[in-house]
Amino acid sequence: MIWWIALRAIMAREALRFVQQRARFVAALVRPLIWLLVFAAGFRAALGLAIIPPYTTYISYETYIVPGLCGMILLFNGMQSSLSLVYDREMGSMRLLLTAPLPRWFILSAKLVAGAAMSVLQVYAFLGIAALFGITLKPWGYVAALPALAITALMLGALGLALSSLIKQLENFAGVMNFVIFPMFFLSSALYPLWKMAESSQLLYRLCAVNPFTHGVELVRFALYAQFNAPALGWTVLALAVFMTAALRGYDPARGMMTKKG
């Protein structure tokens, strides 16, 4: 019972913070909408798309990048969650939370679940707006995408947790995020299929192929069309386990920065 109360309290705190930060919600939607409505118009002619799974016919470029833009929302929100953790640590509330009579892994997992839930809600808000502009999916695709979005959000949130254990000061956040977000996003299948990348550079293709964000995007892409992508699921879950392990080690008082800075 105490675990459920703690989980509910942490999720309520994250929800309250989300409601109070309306600008964050608007920015999370404006960013992918700019790509969908502006950049896609310019790239449409330059990036011809072949018929590749999960698609069974030729599609518009706007349709192709929708799963990648969903991933963009999850990625940026995962990094924003790490920012809030750094802020909480500087204010002292993170140390207070971690000294609660509950396992450290549960506290961090609860914050991870709460952040992922907020991210998934924003993705569905984006999909609703995209539908108004003609980018629609089959109704079952919206349902099938929920577990894929949740797993991808947890994976990217765990990455944010791991990074937050390494960032000592809030001022260092922007540099670290730029070093992580943009390489992960652009070296992925979010904006262009991997076969297109292979045509230009085998090295970049291999980097995209090992990028956990690529597998998260592909997991979401297939799920939006009610199809299952086992390799993408396996790699995404593996990345989630690795990032969460790194986060738990980083927040371990015996070896992490919690001993160096509250």
Rank of each mutant, 00 (worst) to 15 (best):
W3D: 00
L7Y: 05
A12E: 10
R13I: 02
R13L: 06
R13W: 00
E14Y: 01
L16Q: 08
F18G: 03
V19S: 15
R22Y: 09
A23W: 00
L29Q: 06
L29H: 04
L29T: 01
I34P: 01
L37W: 07
A40Y: 02
A40S: 14
A40T: 10
G42Y: 00
G42A: 06
F43Y: 12
A50S: 07
A50Q: 13
I51M: 05
P53G: 04
Y55A: 12
T56E: 13
I59D: 06
S60M: 05
Y61A: 13
Y61W: 00
Y64W: 12
L74W: 11
G78S: 14
M79H: 05
S81P: 00
L83Q: 12
L83C: 08
L83R: 15
V86Q: 01
D88F: 02
M91Q: 12
R95Y: 00
R95D: 15
L96H: 10
L102Y: 02
L102W: 05
R104C: 14
I107D: 01
I107S: 07
L108C: 03
S109M: 14
A110I: 03
V113F: 06
A116L: 01
A117E: 11
M118W: 02
S119G: 13
S119K: 07
L121C: 06
L121D: 03
I129T: 09
A130F: 13
A130N: 07
A131Q: 04
L132P: 05
L132D: 03
F133I: 11
F133V: 15
G134Y: 11
L137D: 11
K138D: 09
Y142H: 09
L149T: 02
I151N: 02
T152D: 05
A153E: 14
L154G: 02
G160Q: 12
L161P: 04
L161W: 00
L161F: 00
S165N: 02
I167R: 02
I167T: 04
F173H: 09
V180N: 02
I181N: 09
S189G: 12
S189Q: 11
S189F: 14
Y192K: 14
Y192W: 08
P193Y: 09
M197C: 08
E199K: 14
S201Y: 06
L204K: 10
Y205H: 12
L207T: 07
L207M: 13
N211Q: 08
N211D: 08
P212Y: 04
G216R: 09
V217N: 09
V217I: 14
E218R: 11
R221I: 07
A223Y: 04
A223F: 06
Q227V: 04
Q227W: 02
Q227R: 03
Q227E: 12
A230P: 14
P231S: 11
A232C: 07
L233P: 06
L233Q: 04
W235R: 13
L238W: 01
V242Q: 06
V242C: 10
M244L: 13
T245E: 05
A246T: 10
A247K: 12
G250T: 05
Y251V: 15
D252R: 02
P253S: 07
A254C: 09
R255A: 09
G256A: 05
M257W: 10
M258S: 12
T259G: 15
